[in-house]
Design a protein around this nucleic acid. Structure first.
Lengths: 212, 212
DNA sequence: GACAATTCTTGACACTCGTCCAGAACTCCT
DNA sequence: AGGAGTTCTGGACGAGTGTCAAGAATTGTC
């Protein structure tokens, strides 16, 4: 029983690539189960046994693939980022006019608000955890940076299309859109129904505002 | 041993007012200790025993004054709100010009960002918890409403002073300022030093933007 | 098919948690 | 001073936690 060192064993280095990736593949599988559990229960109420119950494995495996709980959750946070910034860039690329971009962007936000509500609440939960747990900070900041870049592209492109100039630093613009989204999520999960529509409106208004 | 029913016993009803309030007074005392603990450790890591250690009492007493943990924390959240909206109204009342109001408001925000950082991170933590725990939702929404009102007064008064008209619904304006503040808190607790100064700038810019 | 390396299961460990309760300590009134 | 009502203590309970390790099951290789 030779324990793995790092994430690569001697056997893997000489074996085929597909074989070598099996370890990483299972890590992803387990992390996805963890993400599902986390998004249902939140960080404070999620246990390793609960995560394992969302898989076909027993709770012991988690410690075979992850050193401890923090590494697992950190891995999850990193993985999360790859899911979250996809829809928007298509919108940016497709838009030919400012109005198109504005409408498409607002619709994308309102759409993900209801479609991925549980994932988003997990994000806000983990970001809050990072205020207390330094171990999460770097990953959280990295994701925040990715989201900020996304907003930067949207706002920048919109400014181009309408011949305006950004009226706020991009980081501040991101903070505003994020605040809008978070309030909308709060309302949506509380059952206040016009949440998506209101978000749609507010996003369009704010986008027009931050470029003049 | 006659257990208290609700929060008023027979003895209290006939006793003096000071005597009657002793129960409530101790509740506040315990809740303050709980708030301190929560703001240090965060919701996920705060236990009743830990809270009791911040007081001169033993852990059993918490169940004498609060039915269970949820009631204690709910009480804490309610109590928190009374602390958080005081500085700003003075600023609004004192300002004679738009510039004065803008500068005062921005300074107040930057000030509380560093002075009450731990309390603010608790607020964001609890608000995130409410995304998972319906028991917290009403209180969280109430506090959010109070904060929104505060922003409304600031933005409204500023619009008056500069003869502008609000360019965003007040609820959206609140969401934006809140987003700004949350990002600043994240940076501040991560040790990025210009956090307060940047918040100050961004707040002034945003305030000018949402009234035109 | 046998051997070795891996992946996975199972049960145990040492804690910590919220909750409860018997009774000690205290307070207040007559 | 004594007794009733109150506040508080400290220990116990059962459930749940992260972690670990011994060994069973599986897989890949010759």
């Amino acid at each position: 029983m030779s324990k793995r060192v790092g994430s690569v064993s001697l056997a893997e280095m000489t074996a085929t690539v597909g074989r070598a990736d099996k370890f990483e593949e299972r890590r992803r599988e387990l992390a996805d189960a963890a993400l599902q559990t986390l998004s249902e229960l939140g960080y404070a109420r999620t246990s390793l046994r609960e995560i394992a119950q969302h898989t076909s494995f027993s709770h012991g495996v988690l410690h075979y693939y992850f050193r401890d709980k923090v590494e697992l959750i950190t891995y999850c946070v990193r993985r999360y980022k790859s899911v979250c910034v996809q829809r928007y860039d298509e919108v940016v690329a497709a838009a030919r006019t400012g109005e198109e971009l504005s409408a498409g962007f607002a619709e994308a936000m309102a759409g993900t608000l209801v479609a991925d509500a549980r994932m988003h609440r997990l994000w806000y939960d983990l970001r809050s955890q990072s205020l207390f747990e330094p171990a999460f900070r770097d990953d959280v900041r990295e994701i925040d940076a990715i989201l900020e870049d996304m907003i930067t592209r949207v706002v920048g492109r919109y400014a181009e299309l309408v011949d305006g100039v950004p009226a706020l630093p991009f980081t501040a613009a991101y903070a505003c859109f994020d605040g809008l989204f978070q309030q909308a999520l709060l309302r949506h999960l509380s059952g206040v129904e016009p949440a998506p529509a209101r978000l749609h409106d507010d996003v369009e208004r704010l986008l027009a505002l931050v470029t003049n």
